[in-house]
């Protein structure tokens, strides 16, 4: 499943479709304020784009864009962004995750600062969800593949 597909049609179609899928996922993340969606859904669609890339173009092509190690780091960074914004609010003199206090750093009124804080949190959630989903997919689908490689070497 990790090897690239032999099928020209699926390969070409996913080549054309993956960038649009990723930009749509980013749209869902960024426009959680105005339309349905948010970090979780956008992260899942983002992961789906990478999954389609793995299924059609193989693991090697995907590694150039997002390696397993980078995915692991990104999942930590996502949680860190979330907790870090909360801690920043704590440092600035508010409660934990009280985004209104961010207006001391940014040149906006507190309501706008809360909106921006929500956006940052959504980005963190999206990064974490995307990296975790992609990692789980890779882990599940590579467990057997490496055993086969072992057998073929012996």
């Amino acid at each position: 499943m990790i090897r690239d597909s032999q099928d020209v049609i699926v390969k070409t179609l996913s080549r054309l479709l993956v960038p649009f899928m990723v930009i749509y996922a980013l749209y869902v993340i960024m426009h959680g304020h105005h339309s349905p969606g948010g970090g979780f859904q956008g992260g899942v669609i983002l992961a789906a784009g990478f999954v389609l890339l793995v299924v059609s173009h193989g693991l090697e092509q995907t590694r150039k864009r997002l390696s397993e190690k980078a995915a692991g780091v990104l999942s930590s960074i996502g949680v860190f962004i979330y907790a870090g914004i909360g801690a920043l609010c704590l440092i600035l003199g508010g409660n934990y995750l009280d985004y209104g206090k961010l207006s001391k750093l940014l040149p906006v009124v507190p309501a706008e600062a809360r909106s921006l804080g929500i956006l940052g949190v959504e980005i963190g959630v999206a990064l974490a969800v995307m990296a975790v989903m992609f990692t789980i997919f890779l882990v599940i689908f590579t467990v057997g593949e490496f055993q086969e490689d072992d057998r073929s070497e012996k």
């Binding site: 099928d7 049609i9 699926v10 179609l13 479709l17 649009f20």
Partner: peptide, 15 residues
Amino acid sequence: FLFLAQPTATHAISR
């Protein structure tokens, strides 16, 4: 998107 994806899915499963 449907016109791109639907024939491809049909082709993939028939293949």
